[in-house]
Amino acid sequence: MKPAAFVRHVPRTLDEALKILAQVAPQDGRVLAGGQSLVPIMAFRLAKPAHLVDINEVEGLDRISNDGKLLSIGARVRHAAFHKSVVENPLGLLLTEVARHIAHYPIRVRGTFCGSLAHADPASEWCLVAATLDATMVAKNTRGERPIAAKDYFQGIMSTALAEDELLAEARLPLLASDAKFGFNEFNRRAGDFAMAASLVCYRLQGGKIVEPRVGVGGAEPCPRRIAEAEAALNGKAPGDAVFRAAAEAAASAVEPLEDHQTTGEYRRDLVRAVVRRALEQSIT
């Protein structure tokens, strides 16, 4: 349980980091942030990067800022930063609600928001947040930066649109309407385990009817995504048990579930049905 040998680079500035990454990326170089996913994989020797660009000393990447429309989360911001609300907006509460489901406390103190997005585990809570809220991922390399929309960013199990020399420097989440309602639910075997299915829902009420519904599902498919069929089942309806059940059923039918030795597609759909309905129920309590 020892990683294969690697060279660790410790840049102090973003420019320096991007330069080193440009050099080492073709030689199997990877970015190291909190290391809570990468390091275990290295210990199992499932990943054997020759170079690690450790960004933990890079100035400026630890910031959270908001411009009134977007919340920007730098590459070094840890999960634990969200234990308390980071912005006076329902988004702050949403992130707080989700953060406590991420693994265990020691992991949350070290792991990073952007690191989760870069790793892109299908079960990641932050990836579900990014997909559901249509976040923008800001990728940087020595040639410049480009924004990537969530729907284009997630490409498969632990696969993203980031090029090998790109650093995910920041993620931008849209602030929510002040009257936004949200709910989150996930299912796992033990407290802190990877979610076998998770759902984040968000909507507004106008005249007692649901508008701008967002229903995200994670952990059930290779990538987290919004489920249009479930959103359609909510749109324009008054929140309530029957509507929530219909949306949950629509989500369960719409997903193309991941299967494994223990978990059939049928069971994964059961979980999707349960987590979507429970997230919706939480949104009104």
Partner: peptide, 24 residues
């Protein structure tokens, strides 16, 4: 502990082989 049909073990870490934690 789960073996696949070829005799490989699918539960070779403590995320897949699940002793209870204090929360359980």
């Amino acid at each position: 502990i789960i073996y696949d049909e070829s005799g490989g073990i699918l539960t070779a870490n403590l995320a897949d082989y699940m002793p209870p934690t204090a929360r359980e």
